[in-house]
Write a protein that binds this DNA or RNA. Sequence first.
DNA 1: ACGTTTAATCGTATATTTGCGATATAAGAT
DNA 2: ATCTTATATCGCAAATATACGATTAAACGT
Lengths: 111, 111
Amino acid sequence: MAVHKKEAFTQKEQDLANFAKAMAHPARIAILKVLAQRNECICGEIVDLLPLAQSTVSQHLKELKTAGLITGAVDGPRSCYCINWKAFEKFNGEFNFLFTNLKIKNEKACC
Amino acid sequence: MAVHKKEAFTQKEQDLANFAKAMAHPARIAILKVLAQRNECICGEIVDLLPLAQSTVSQHLKELKTAGLITGAVDGPRSCYCINWKAFEKFNGEFNFLFTNLKIKNEKACC
DNA sequence: ACGTTTAATCGTATATTTGCGATATAAGAT
DNA sequence: ATCTTATATCGCAAATATACGATTAAACGT
């Protein structure tokens, strides 16, 4: 009863799914939004902006970092995070390749 | 101890997160891929293509439909699903608005 | 009417995610 | 050296997600 069969799919499918999963929470969307809006990296500011405990925000940041959507660097006693634009470019491209490109020929699909 | 505080975020953040969540599984990515590649809708074919039980595939289809990424129609004894291109357009646009557009001015971010 | 085919739903076991408080860690300030 | 500040990690409880078999439902062919 192996309850998760993610391994049974292609690497690309898993990669895209992981990318999507990293964004599959409003808190993480909010974090990305903040990071995208500021030219310089932030850290504990995010905690003040979100309606979540510090430990929870830290966990979300870790998930985003693990997934590669953001980068993080220690800066003295605080931590500095930034959007990893390269990752977004990559996945946005892959996403478009999978779906948007196909749209042209399939626009008049059935149901 | 309300363990989920999704309500505490904006509607847009929740919408984007829900869209991402719908794609946050390789099986659902695979389903979308199949639907995107075929000009006509499929149904039980998907079950044959995926390494999952029929009931599991049905559940994934339901999730995709509930999230609005696909449409479904009953066609006699079988069901017919299609990509909802409009939804993809909408979310792709919102996504780009949130992130890709901001990229231009933030390219040289710190870490 | 009856059996077959196709797909949805139910029930359930297990895994994963989310959230928080408490604690640990690490760097600066005094 | 000690205290403060900033952040990460641990441990746990509750909520969700994943997967499957079994069952149900609906439509078609005979």
